[in-house]
Design a protein around this nucleic acid. Structure first.
Length: 555
RNA sequence: AGACCUAUGGUGUAAUUGGCAACACAGCAGAUUUUGGUUCUGUCGUUCUAAGUUCGAGUCUUAGUAGGUCUACCA
């Protein structure tokens, strides 16, 4: 047994291990993933999902899934269902039932009353504008609201009135009484409750006041006994409010720890901006294969395991980062290389006639489904006198010695078939475009039983003209022309929308592909990985390009 | 301008917590290959700056510089 290299822990795990060693919370580790159900989950969320659920698994704890649904204006049940589905698809299970911040509304209300009774919260009649004006700024302290010193009794009455629906939206709020001169602006009497006469996706019309993030998130953590509440860096300043509330309410002391969220080049993770792409019709929906959403990546053909491995492999720190998308694609290829069947598809067909092959004859050739998988079976593909090869695999003149595809006078092997000798070609007199290539084949060069002694450096994929079926293939490119489309202060991210991010073509594919099942990933030999789309039918298969093969050929 | 956070190859992270700066991705070169894929080998290249503490600093201290976050009745 070799001694393993010491495992290096990220800064959050170091804290957790230390807490366990100190017996904090009896050594338990409870985490949670708290999405707001106002959009689809995206790559950025994947990092948080993997982090939280892995921690729960690794340290024998549990991980809750909690919908942070305190804003009825933007939240929908439809989003809840998609979020649940996406997390399951990634392979994770949350502890017990899905939880909702809205389940705690009554408890939260009671907490607010406790605060009022302690003289630590008050109802403010100021308008939003007045409150902003009294807030001060980074260099000047704020000033106290004229309503700050209302009596506890009056505050209780007014707050009850707010709940009872006695006041219109925006007329009053409940604020914590902290410090209007605090250097942290969030500590300048943060708003805890606002009035919103709106229908909530779960509580219906039961409430017309709703708690804000600062008065819902930390308390929900506490109610659930979350020991380590992990969130992204921008919540750093909220931690002071989070801790203040825990202290004053004397509730379970969850600990908030911030980490830098993950950014991936050419992808955006702003739900608002993603929504805009959907609303403006630049993509077909939240699950468009170009979208950096989990639903989009799934439809694109990215295996869940690839996404999880990617998230695990990039580490965790507090510095801003942009991970090159190539790294995600590396994991996608690695996963698909192991699992995807190799199939024949010609995207840009050029007809080849094998002049010494009998007319009308169709031969079935055996080919292995996946050379990377020992347990992989074989199947048969048709071969005949007329085939299609990739137009890019033929040149009227071989450019150099390093070129080993098809050109007049050259030999080239057809995958799982015969070696061809290229004789001549026809061109369209009008355009000069090559229309047909003529070859002869070596009958004794059949794959697996080659006795010809003929050498061919290159191997091409092909489909038999008579048996090939047409398929719709959606070729995808990066959604944006800039690696960080949202980082330009002077330009809107939509200016970088890649108009060529989708090209739909008709390809010729081997007959077995009519039975492709939606979601199934295959490798189009020598071209890339493709996944059958949900639109696929037996009569008209539809494939999404997942990612190209790496490709090191330089003409 | 203030408070807070951050700074290690092109990118992302390590560095046994003060002891020879390494791993992965990307790039480049080569070997193997009935996929110019996979696999394998080699190669390129790194501690923001300046002082200080120390036998010794990527790590500790101070100052500076750069980037980020914060002044929503969003989360």
């Amino acid at each position: 047994m070799s001694t393993e290299a010491r495992e290096s822990l990220n800064f959050i795990e170091q804290i957790i291990v230390e807490d366990i060693q100190n017996g904090k919370h009896g050594g338990s580790v409870y985490t949670r993933f708290p999405p707001e159900p106002n959009g689809f989950l995206h790559v950025g969320h994947c990092r948080a999902i993997v982090l939280n659920f892995d921690l729960g698994l690794k340290y024998n704890g549990k991980t809750n899934l909690r919908m942070d649904d305190t804003n009825p204006t933007t939240e929908k049940t439809d989003y809840v269902d998609n979020i649940k589905n996406d997390i399951k698809w990634l392979g994770y299970e949350w502890d017990g039932d899905v939880l909702y911040s809205s389940d705690y509304f009554e408890q939260l209300y009671d907490y607010a009353v406790v605060l009022i009774k302690k003289g630590l919260a008050y109802v403010d009649d100021s308008t939003a504008e007045e409150m902003a004006a009294m807030k001060g700024d980074t260099t000047t302290p704020g000033s106290n609201s004229p309503f700050r010193d209302r009596s506890i009794e009056e505050n209780i009455t007014l707050f009850a009135g707010m709940r009872a629906g006695e006041f219109p939206d925006g007329t009053r709020v409940l604020r914590a009484k902290i410090d209007m001169a605090a250097p942290n602006l969030l500590l300048r009497d943060p708003v805890l409750y606002r009035i919103k006469h709106e229908h909530h996706h779960r509580t219906g019309d039961e409430w017309c006041i709703y708690p804000l993030y600062d008065f819902a998130h930390g308390q929900s953590d506490s109610i659930e006994g979350i020991t380590h509440s992990l969130c992204s860096l921008e919540f750093r300043h909220h931690r002071d409010v989070y801790n203040w509330l825990i202290e004053k309410l004397e509730i379970f002391p969850s600990r908030q720890i911030e980490f830098a969220r993950m950014n991936v080049s050419y992808m955006i993770t702003s739900k608002r901006k993603l929504l805009k792409l959907v609303e403006e019709g630049l993509v077909t929906g939240w699950d468009d294969p170009r979208m950096p959403t989990i639903a989009g990546m799934r439809r694109r053909g990215y295996p869940a395991q690839a996404i999880v491995d990617f998230c695990r492999g990039i580490g965790l720190t507090k510095r801003d980062n942009v991970i090159e998308i190539e790294r995600l694609e590396y994991h996608v290829r690695q996963e698909l290389n192991k699992s995807a069947d190799r199939v024949m598809a010609v995207l840009d067909p050029l007809k080849v006639v094998i002049t010494n092959y009998p007319e009308g004859q169709v031969e079935m050739l055996e080919t292995v489904n996946n050379p990377e998988d020992e347990n992989s079976a074989s199947r048969e593909i048709p071969f005949s006198r007329e085939i299609y090869i990739e137009r890019g695999d033929f040149k009227t003149e071989a450019p150099n010695r390093k070129y080993f595809r098809m050109a007049p006078g050259r030999n080239v092997r057809l995958k799982s078939a015969y070696i061809l000798h290229c004789e001549s070609y026809d061109t369209d007199p009008a355009t000069g475009e090559v229309t047909t290539v003529y070859c002869t084949y070596y009958p004794d060069s059949k794959s697996g039983e080659d006795t010809s002694g003929v050498k061919a450096k290159g191997t091409l994929h092909f489909v038999s003209v008579g048996q090939a079926i047409e398929a719709e293939v959606r070729m995808y490119d990066r959604l944006f022309t800039d690696a960080e489309p949202t980082s330009h202060e002077d330009k809107d991210f939509l200016e970088f929308f890649n108009e060529e991010s989708l090209k739909t073509i008709t390809a010729y594919v081997e007959p077995s592909l009519s039975k492709a099942k939606a979601g199934e990933g295959v490798q189009f030999m020598r071209l890339g990985y493709f996944a059958a789309d949900e639109d696929t039918t037996e009569a008209k298969p539809v494939f999404n390009q997942t990612v190209t093969l790496k490709g090191s050929y330089k003409p």
